[in-house]
Design a protein around this nucleic acid. Structure first.
Lengths: 230, 230
DNA sequence: TAAATATGTGTAATTTTAACACTAATATTT
DNA sequence: AAATATTAGTGTTAAAATTACACATATTTA
């Protein structure tokens, strides 16, 4: 009745496109690539590639990210599949999008090797090929939801960070100012940060204490039913 | 650099599987189909089909739902893509899942025409083929999120409903008891229901007032920044 | 030693959520 | 005709969460 004969069915190209978010002290950024073949040669694009027969989508996303940036062990998450018939004028292609989160500072060396890729501030990213701008929007909205429901600094900040950096990150993702005291109070009440003795002296004369995520404690609490909620 | 040559790439079968949720006074249900071909012939399965070259995923989901149930104008939403290499032993297939919401009572005539399909209570649904049980779980978790962030009765209830029915629906989706008075107070404060003069006499001697969603008002409020939050 | 700069801290008011129990209407039974 | 059984309908109070808000501290540089 349903899938009665696999052989008759259409087979289709399946692309994976990656929305790579990075954070660098102040601004939320996105990594784009200059496309070097037709159609749309020379225009800015997300990083993409095609799914191979012998890999699943998660693997493909990891492979594509790694191939284009050299990066490994990056947090990625599937977001949505785009499938308008004419979305790619060259050929019918479905694109499954993934977003990635990167702490720019601690990965910049690897990245800089690569040629035609560039970090843009999310706010002034250029027009992208095909439906890629809409993909970015959707990934962004997913990122926003995630930020409210899971701690996000694990991936998008250096291992040690100041409260102010953490706050800036949340402000960038949520795109609104947060109150300094309320933010700190809130995070303290969640009790998933470790305050270090070290200070970061780069941002002020007084210096600011560094913190770390207590991932172990966080995971334990989650197991016990804890629900992060900013 | 990236997608350098479309022709070299693998093309793959793309399935769409539908998780069809229904509600019937008390219970959240799911519509399943008995598979009538190999592999897994005779076992219960989600409704599925393959994407055709000339349609996008949303269209395919609508077509599949309609073909198997006769239903039209049903709310559907894309959830996630499943892609494990060996998920379908017959052939490499990616499956994009959609969930649908149906008011069972007002559609049962159309549905009953169809042969090997059956409503199961979600709680005692059978083991399904392939990764379909995991698909149901994921769709369910998406439905739960949606219920907390958007009014859901538009699709899963008859046009006119009692407060008690609405509450039962939310209880079924969220899988926990809610307090009657708090629930009503909350919904009243949202101010998106119309209280009718009519009563439903089927559930009690006293009768219960019927309500309707005020979709126009709801949409207006959303435009003005209103955020439904149960 | 004065000025400049970013850090760090607590309380009170407001809003939201959660807990909770009785009366009303009416059909059915005795 | 009265008693009973059943679901509908309604408000208040306590607790918790969120928001708003201002000044002293440490240190470098002028």
């Amino acid at each position: 009745m349903i899938l009665n004969n696999y052989n008759k069915e259409d087979k289709i190209l399946l692309a994976v496109d990656c929305i790579i978010f990075g954070f660098d002290k102040e601004q939320l950024k996105i990594l784009l690539v200059k496309r070097d073949f037709e159609p749309e040669k020379g225009n800015w694009s997300l990083m993409g590639g095609f799914l191979k027969k012998e890999e699943d989508l998660d693997k493909a996303a990891i492979r594509i990210l790694n191939h284009l940036t050299g990066l490994n062990n990056i947090y990625m998450e599937q977001v949505y599949s785009f499938s308008k018939v004419d979305r790619d004028p060259a050929e019918r292609t479905i694109s499954v999008i993934y977003y990635a989160l990167i702490d720019i500072a601690s990965h910049n060396k690897e990245l800089l090797k690569q040629n035609p890729i560039h970090w843009f501030n999310l706010k002034d990213a250029p027009k992208l090929i095909f439906d890629h701008n809409r993909m970015v929007e959707r990934a962004m909205s997913r990122l926003r939801k995630r930020a409210l429901n899971k701690p996000i600094g694990f991936e998008l900040l250096p291992e040690k960070f100041t409260m102010r950096q953490l706050q800036k990150l949340y402000e960038a993702i949520l795109d609104r100012k947060l109150d300094k005291r309320n933010f700190i109070n809130k995070f303290n009440s969640l009790d998933i940060l470790i305050k270090l003795d070290e200070k970061d002296m780069s941002s002020s004369k007084k210096g600011a204490f560094l913190f770390q995520f207590n991932e172990k404690k966080y995971n334990l609490k989650v197991q016990e039913g804890f629900n992060f909620k900013l």
